[in-house]
């Protein structure tokens, strides 16, 4: 039973049933710095993540 979050090359496994926001907080990722996508669609912070889902996080901050 887990949800997988992927940010760049790193993968994180979390327990299902939490909101995306709670997951990001647990991983110490600021919501402001990523977009969360599932099956090519954007999802928002209040979405409850279910078992087996894979969430790809797109980093939004660039430097230079």
């Amino acid at each position: 039973m887990s949800v997988k979050l992927i940010l760049r090359e790193r993968e994180y496994e979390l327990r299902p049933g939490m909101t995306l926001l709670s997951c990001l907080q647990k991983l110490d990722i600021l919501p402001e710095t990523v977009l969360a996508t599932r099956d090519g669609e954007l999802i928002e912070e209040d979405e409850i993540l279910q078992d087996g889902q894979v969430i790809k996080l797109v980093a939004v901050i660039s430097g230079g």
Binding site: T33, V58, A59, V60, G63
Partner: peptide
């Protein structure tokens, strides 16, 4: 910056994701 990333994503604009 997040708004622009969301725009590019939703418009299907292919951009360089990796940082310089």
């Amino acid at each position: 910056e997040r708004e622009m990333a969301a725009y590019a994503f939703l418009r299907g604009i292919e951009y360089i994701y990796d940082e310089c």
